[in-house]
Amino acid sequence: MYGSYLRWIPRAASLLLCLLFWQLAASGHWNLGLVTFANVPTPLAVIQAALGLGDSGKLAQHLSSSLSRVFAGYLAALIIGIALGLAVGRSKWAEDVLLPPLEVLRPIPAVAWIPLAILMFPSSELSMVFITFTGALFPILLNTVHGVEGVDPRLIASAKSLGAGRRAILLEVILPGAAPSIITGLAIGMGTSWFCLVTAEMISGQYGIGYYTWESYTIQNYADIVVGMLLIGVLGMGSSLLIKCLGGLFTPWHRPRGKA
C-alpha cells in the first residue's frame, strides 16, 4: 500500500533536493558548459531578499495590486470564455463566425499586446487587466468547446425524450456534462493568467509582483528577481489548486481515474 500520507514524503524530499542542488550550484559557481551558475543568487541570498521585501512594508501592496489585476482579468475570461465556448460548441453557425478570428488572436503572445493595450484602454490598470484576460481566455474557451462537444449525443436525445426543452438541455445536460473539462480549462487559465502578469505589469508604474520582478531586473538586483519569480509561482500554484478544489466540490460525481 502506498498511502496518501506517505506520498508527502517523496514530494517534500523532491523539493528539498532541488533547493540543495540550487544552493550547491550557486555557492560553488558551477559552470556546466551550456549553463553557468556563476551569477545566480543562492537560496540563502533569496531568503534574505524576501525578508527584506517583507520588512520594507511594500509586499502587501504588491500582492494586492497583482491579485486584483489577475482576479479581474480572470473573472472576465471566465464569463466570456465559457459563454463563447458554449456557443461555439453548440452551434455550427457560431463556430463558423467566432472561431476563425479567435484562432488568429490565440497565438499572439501577451508581450505583443502591450502597445495596443496601452492605446486601446483609458488607464494602464485596464490595459494590465486586459493582458491577464488574454492569457486566461483561450484555455477556458477551448476546454469549454472541447467539453461541450464531448457530451454524449445519446444523453441529449434521452433528455429530449424525457421532455427537456432547449434551456433544460443546456442547464441539465450540456453544462454538467462539460463541467469537468471546463474546470480543467479554468485551472490552466488561472496559471496562464499569472504567467502573463509580469508582461502586463511592465506597464505598471509602482506596484505589483510582476512590476517588482521587472524593476529588479532593470536595476540588476538578482536575488529580488528570484523572489518575484517564486512569489508568482507559489501564487499561481495556490490559485490553480484552489480552482481545482472548488471544481471538485461542484462535480462530486466526477472522480478522475487513479494510476493503475
Partner: peptide, 20 residues
C-alpha cells in the same frame, strides 16, 4: 414529430446522467 415523454426510449447502454 420530435421526441416526447409520451414515447420513452431505452438504449443498449444506459444514458443516465452521471451528475445526478
Amino acid at each position: 414529430s420530435g421526441p416526447s415523454p409520451q414515447r420513452g426510449m431505452v438504449f443498449q447502454h444506459h444514458t443516465l446522467f452521471p451528475w445526478r
